[in-house]
Structures are given as structure tokens and as C-alpha cells.
């Protein structure tokens, strides 16, 4: 059963251990509906583990989380119906065309006749004319668009993006940023984004959270953050300031 309307993502005392290594430690997190949440942290901070738990791929060692009001462990199927996910460095099926890739994921999302839906999504992403090309022929930026397309084909309420700009050139980053903002504004999708690029956070996100060694050490809206750290000249300095504390 759904728990709350205000927060689409809630995590309570979330802990994940891999034998002796603690990837996440007592994480408490709330993300409001309609936000673009930037999840920052160095490599190994636990960002991907958090996303894997929120997308129901992993079970936490202790604690619980809910997405769209559904428990990620008890109602994992309901959660998966409402989320879209683009993992880091996903290459898709290169010997299939863009249309075939999208058709496959659409059918797995329960869309029986996905042709119209695929056309609608490709139209939204300004990607028409490429649907019959094999993914092996695509640039990294084009593949990321297909990645976004498969993630939104079933109209999810929340979209999880794990380092979406990784490996993209400046133009690819700009295009993807525009897509993310449009998805949020036009389709009302809440976006949870793991990222390293602070410049992207500044231009895209409405709220930021900083994870350090599996613990959430900071969370606030971007305007408040900029106000709090008004002496710092850039978001990078703010981030380093937060991490050092």
C-alpha cells in the first residue's frame, strides 16, 4: 500500500554490507515529488548501491525504502511498474535496431502493442529517423537517448539515472541535460540522478544530496545550498567544503 504522497522516495536507516565492507550506513533520505535530485559522492561512496536498492535490484542488509509509496522489498513489482532506470555504461543490444531494443523493453514493461508508444517517445526525444538503425552504429550520446527512451517508454513516475553523462562529449551532455529538464517539466517525472559532474548538478538539479562512505552528510535544495555557502566561488568548492566537514 502507498505510504505518503509528498515523498516519492523514502529511505529509513538503510544499511548495506558486503561481508566486511559497509557500502551504505544508516542512510535516511527523502525525495519530493517533482524534484530533480542530484546524488553526489566520490567513487565507492555508495551511490550505485543506493540506486540498486531503490530500484529493487538489491535488498538492504537492514532498514527499508519505499518508492512511490511502495516498499522496495515487499512490493517490488509495484515499485518496478512505476520507475524507469538507466544504469551506468549500459550498451544495450547492439545487433538490434533502436526500434527492436525499445520494442523488447516495452513488451517487458507490459505494453502489448508498443509501436505507437515507441513513436511517441522517439518524437519526444527528437530521435525520429534513427529507429531502424542498429545500435552498434550509434554514438554514445545517441545510445544514451535510447537509454532514456527505454526508461520512459512505460510512463514512469520516477526516473533513476546512474552517471548519465559519463563518457559524453560537451554537446552530448548539453543535449541530455535538456532532455532531463524536459522530462521533469513536461512529463512531471521525478528524477534521481547519480553524478560526478558538479556543473551538471548546478544546471539541472533542484536538490542535492552528498554521500560519503555510505553516509548522507548533506541534503538541501540547490538555492539554499548556494545561499549557505555564499563565500564559495563554485559548486565544486561547496562540495569539497561539505566533504571535508
Amino acid at each position: 500500500m502507498p505510504k505518503s504522497d509528498k515523498f516519492v522516495i523514502e529511505a529509513h536507516s538503510l544499511t548495506k554490507k558486503y561481508k566486511d565492507f559497509t557500502a551504505l550506513s544508516d542512510l535516511n533520505l527523502e525525495v519530493e515529488k517533482g524534484e530533480i535530485f542530484g546524488f553526489l559522492g566520490h567513487n565507492g561512496a555508495g551511490k550505485t548501491t543506493t540506486v540498486n536498492i531503490l530500484t529493487t535490484l538489491l535488498e538492504p542488509t537492514s532498514g527499508n525504502a519505499s518508492v512511490c509509496g511502495f516498499d522496495t522489498q515487499k512490493d517490488s513489482l509495484e515499485v518496478r511498474k512505476r520507475i524507469g532506470y538507466l544504469p551506468e555504461n549500459v550498451k544495450f543490444y547492439e545487433d538490434l535496431t533502436a526500434f527492436e531494443n525499445l520494442e523488447f523493453f516495452a513488451k517487458l514493461s507490459g505494453i502489448r502493442e508498443p509501436k505507437d508508444k515507441i513513436e511517441e517517445v522517439l518524437d519526444f526525444l527528437d530521435f525520429k529517423g534513427f529507429e531502424n538503425k542498429k545500435l552498434g552504429e550509434f554514438s554514445k550520446g545517441m545510445r544514451q537517448r535510447i537509454g532514456i527512451a527505454q526508461a520512459i517508454i512505460h510512463d514512469p513516475e520516477v526516473l533513476f539515472l546512474d552517471e548519465p553523462t559519463s563518457g559524453l562529449d560537451p554537446m552530448g551532455i548539453k543535449n541530455l541535460r535538456e532532455v532531463i529538464i524536459e522530462l521533469n517539466k513536461k512529463k512531471g517525472i521525478t528524477i534521481f540522478m547519480n553524478t560526478h559532474l558538479l556543473s551538471e548538478v548546478a544546471k539541472t538539479c533542484t536538490t542535492i544530496g552528498v554521500l560519503n562512505h555510505g553516509k548522507l552528510i548533506y541534503k538541501d535544495s540547490l538555492p539554499n545550498t548556494l545561499k549557505k555557502f555564499k563565500d564559495e566561488v563554485s559548486l565544486e568548492e561547496i562540495y569539497l567544503n561539505i566533504e571535508s566537514k
Binding site: 540498486n52 513489482l77 518496478r80
Partner: peptide, 18 residues
Amino acid sequence: AKEKGKNTLQLLLSRPLG
């Protein structure tokens, strides 16, 4: 291997499948 090597296994597992 085709799923693990291309990270598509996570995509499959994040779908509403039994």
C-alpha cells in the same frame, strides 16, 4: 554474458517482471 557484459541485466531486473 551478453547481459552482464552490456549491463542490460540491470535493465531486465528493473522491469516489472516476476
